[in-house]
Write a protein that binds this DNA or RNA. Sequence first.
DNA 1: ATGCCTCAAAGGTCAGACCATTAATCATTA
DNA 2: TAATGATTAATGGTCTGACCTTTGAGGCAT
Lengths: 245, 245
Amino acid sequence: MKAQAQEKLTMKEMKPDTRTSLSDGIVEQLVDLISRDVLKPGDRLPSERELCKRLGVGRSSLREALRSLAVMGIIDGRVGDGTFVSNSNKRYLEKTLQWGLLLDRKKVQDLIETRLMLESQTAFLAAQRVTAKNIEAIEETLRGMEASIGQPEKYLEFDLQFHLTIARATQNSILYSLLSMIRGYLQEWIKGSLAEPSTTQTETRAELSLLEHQKILDALQKGEADQAQQAMTEHILSSSIDLQR
Amino acid sequence: MKAQAQEKLTMKEMKPDTRTSLSDGIVEQLVDLISRDVLKPGDRLPSERELCKRLGVGRSSLREALRSLAVMGIIDGRVGDGTFVSNSNKRYLEKTLQWGLLLDRKKVQDLIETRLMLESQTAFLAAQRVTAKNIEAIEETLRGMEASIGQPEKYLEFDLQFHLTIARATQNSILYSLLSMIRGYLQEWIKGSLAEPSTTQTETRAELSLLEHQKILDALQKGEADQAQQAMTEHILSSSIDLQR
DNA sequence: ATGCCTCAAAGGTCAGACCATTAATCATTA
DNA sequence: TAATGATTAATGGTCTGACCTTTGAGGCAT
């Protein structure tokens, strides 16, 4: 039928089809509210059903809008509790970066290589920017490793935290995010090949590993960037030997 | 009621609550399909109703999953037609810049820093592994840059391809993937701040840029890894000056 | 106070319906 | 025959109302 097509269409100023999808419109409204600080981080949004009535849209559309914001890391839903504005919004990059990497077929060799690149320079940066608090946190993880020697599962976890804490010390969130993902993938792979017999004695390997970590920590404490990078490089190469196959 | 709570819970190996939301599970499945090239860019997904039946989920959940992928720029829905896999590695932000505010200065700085880390070492690796075919492709992009001087849009595109082609030359898909994403984000940001007046003459800047790129190519051709790394580092630092602010 | 129970409200999911848009098909016309 | 217009089936987009599990708060008994 197209009712308005029957009127004389004067052709003057026909809107260039500015129709945006409904849920996108909602996203825009909410982003606007948040960017104008009407909704501050930590705030709780009205319930979905409430928002539906207020915005005059169905719950599907509303939920798709919320989903968008959640993917961007702007809001965060907790079942049974409510939906909240994320404390640190702008997580969008990390989120999509994460999914993006998921798109890749993960080859262990490539992962190790990339990890070496990133983490050696991460150590360099960290040595320059590390705070007393960071050092403390790193020491904590190292103590955890010492305490859990002989328990590979636990040890690996502290190992992971050791490296991530250093990454955090660079104050570069992108870097942290990337390393976290790469190491995460490797972690899974490592666990999978834990049972396999190692060429070197596990005990000896752990002792060596501890020494290497200690060396990295030393360099960080002294703020010796080059030294930290060197120690990290050696550590990663050394610890990757068992994985190279 | 909690049926299983009534059994003797032996506490051995209780899963750390690994339950993920249903739609996130779907996202993972689809991402997996795409990453394994079962679904290639440009392909059309089965209709939503079809996917529902095949995955055994309701349409809401399915749609929320699709929404996530759409926000990330991985798929693209066209009403009345179907949903398609984005012929991608390009559409990252296109949508997102509308919601603005997502890229703050700090993040851009982090991106540049991370890019410098990755790309300098990428040049190093590429110099060792580059093939004749790679060289040819790189030369191609360089010619494109020369030809499109004075047309910032086009020039930027060839610039991007230049760097990505080098990344591809490392034969490390993870590396390529990461650089592609990082550079993609920066690209959008650069475009956004294209109109702003530059301190240096655009012409002069372009000339310099060409020289820098040529220098990198030279090093790659000669297989001089250190030299390539050095040239790349200088280039990135130089070209980032206008962005540092 | 402490712990347990109940219950209302929240987000998550489902099923079925309707709408607007699109592309393909078929019928009409010049 | 070729161009044009109408029909139609399928698609994504939206709405509704229902049910589920989880959560936190308030009341109850200990």
